[in-house]
Design a binder for these strands. Sequence first.
DNA 1: AGGCTTTCGCTACGAGCCGTAGCGTAACCG
DNA 2: CGGTTACGCTACGGCTCGTAGCGAAAGCCT
Lengths: 209, 209
Amino acid sequence: MQSRTSAPRATGGRPRSATADAAILAATRAALVELGWSKLTLGDVATRAGVAKTTLYRRWAGKNELVVDAVAELFDELEIPDRGSLAADVEGVVLQFAAILARPEAKSGLMAVIAESVRDDALRARIRTSIVDRQKRLVLEGRARAQVRGELPPETDPEESARTTDLIFDVIAGTVVHRALVSAEPVDPDWARAFAKLLLNGLTASATA
Amino acid sequence: MQSRTSAPRATGGRPRSATADAAILAATRAALVELGWSKLTLGDVATRAGVAKTTLYRRWAGKNELVVDAVAELFDELEIPDRGSLAADVEGVVLQFAAILARPEAKSGLMAVIAESVRDDALRARIRTSIVDRQKRLVLEGRARAQVRGELPPETDPEESARTTDLIFDVIAGTVVHRALVSAEPVDPDWARAFAKLLLNGLTASATA
DNA sequence: AGGCTTTCGCTACGAGCCGTAGCGTAACCG
DNA sequence: CGGTTACGCTACGGCTCGTAGCGAAAGCCT
């Protein structure tokens, strides 16, 4: 996870407690659930985790970095099971993604750190590497499967392919986040099916519903 | 705009200064540009606006409500010019929306208040009425025009139509926000064209590029 | 064993911001 | 010209921040 502050990690000496790391991240998520981002304080997290506040500051630079690491762990469980068709695969991953976003610790934390990342390049890089980019594999897998099935044409230009991957990722992730957190409406199977149909067939074919 | 704290507005007495309202909102945007959300303090905004801190608290309940109103004004300039085709209309509104999001005061403020709205139903309602819902008219206009042109089939079920409108709105707004703020990549005409094509024709026709 | 290095828990501290109360003054209405 | 409300200003307790300084603990090496 490489969660800590980049440590010189000199040889010898007392090693950092690994259990403390886990306790702190768990305490952070618990605090996010109970208090939300704005009322979460590092002193409170330290108390919940049973460590001293100074220990927390020795490992993380601040609230932002801590919450990124605490939230990132939530997204590691994402998988894209083979459901037999591209449409079904899209629906599946949308529902999985939405299930994570429905958890209060994800809701409270994710948007807040993204908002903070607007003014903090290092933080945005951290978010990208530990959360966003890690999920792009799902798009790549899904496309590859669909091409094997013959649902999508094989790719020619690798650069064009990368651009398309980024576009698809922005569409799926952005749409689901907007539905769940801004519109605040449920991402249920019906909605996922309608979205997958739109994504595959486009607006002009929407009458073929 | 109905920005203020819902005031009983009793008759008689000294009326609230209208210029102060504008000065405060402008000062809030300036502070967002210079400091960003997290370092913005109400005392600083009051000083910038040339009003007392207490005046600010008499009109807004807190930082969240103030920033929502300050940011909401930015989105009122959105229009959807008739460019002759649905694809061109989509590209146009995407670029307009992105231009607003590119402004630092919008970047810093919008995501932060959305994050806060996760734990504050009243705030989310305020965001919806003063920002989100107000822009759905663009989707309705664009669809109506496309139907007149014959690019989209006329609608039958009004309930189904409303669901589709919401879906399209989530897709466009969510995707653009994700591209601009999370991926942090430029929303330029090339990208807008690719996105519009995907939205209209769907993934399966992407080879027809 | 002994020594070295690093982490840990604890306490304390100045600094900054919050949100409110209290007061006298200014602006508008009938 | 009274009545009513908004305004500017000051001051305050309370909270969180992030850091410093200490003694103790935990592991690695010879």
